[in-house]
Amino acid sequence: MDANTVLAEITGNIATVGYGLAAIGPAIGVGIVVGKTIESVARQPELQGRLTVLMYIGIAFTEALAFIGIATYFIFV
């Protein structure tokens, strides 16, 4: 086979992959945050108030990265 033969070709903007990655990371993060909160409340229901606040701040930080990652569409394309 010739060294210059093209076996597969992808067209489009590679930055699109970045938006997908920007969504996957926080989705996993929020899943872990929520899952651990459920686990903790099941173990110690009396801590529900504090754990809800911690879950909130955890979700807020995790999703901030997704917002910034997806918003890069404004400047990178």
């Binding site: 229901p45 009396e46 801590l47 529900q48 108030g49 504090r50 606040v53 909130y56």
Partner: peptide, 11 residues
């Protein structure tokens, strides 16, 4: 979150 007061035992 740091200014809010949430009791250790509640709910």
């Amino acid at each position: 979150v740091s200014r809010g007061r949430v009791p250790y035992v509640s709910d």
